[in-house]
């Protein structure tokens, strides 16, 4: 069952800082940033204002893992963006408070870049 209606906008990464800047001026609250990577990078930015839930979708190719940071408008985004640097190997430009890929120390570099297996492994698990 749906809990709330959700609104989506798709935009180019070059247009991202300006759009986020406008949202910040209008008083939207940054709810979360979610990265995912299957065929291409897809980053979702969610905002909330007066119980309205808006998500921006930014997609770009795996060959060019560069993304402008939004810490200029929302400083709190630094934790999400550093996390994306670590997990996806993205490069964030203009990131205030940059841990340079050392926010988490991981057993495996950029673990989320792997494409998921088509079929689930047998019960008991196979470690990756």
């Amino acid at each position: 069952m749906m809990i709330e209606e959700q609104f989506w906008e798709t935009l180019d990464r070059a247009a991202l800082p300006a759009r986020v800047g406008t949202l910040a001026k209008e008083g939207w609250r940054l709810v979360q940033i979610c990265g995912s990577c299957h065929e291409a990078f897809e980053i979702l930015y969610s905002f909330d204002k007066d119980d309205r839930f808006l998500s921006l979708r930014v997609a770009f190719s795996k060959d060019d893992p560069v993304l402008p940071s939004i810490t200029e408008s929302y400083f709190g985004a630094f934790s999400y963006e550093n996390e994306m640097q670590d997990l996806f190997g993205l490069k964030l430009t203009g990131l205030k408070l940059n841990f340079n890929g050392n926010f988490y120390r991981l057993a495996k570099k950029n673990p989320f870049l792997d494409t998921p297996p088509a079929v689930a492994p047998a019960p008991g698990g196979v470690s990756s």
């Binding site: 991981l106 057993a107 673990p111 196979v126 470690s127 990756s128």
Partner: peptide, 8 residues
């Protein structure tokens, strides 16, 4: 968590 990439 033993299957996870980050757990020894």
């Amino acid at each position: 968590f033993q299957d996870s990439y980050n757990v020894l």
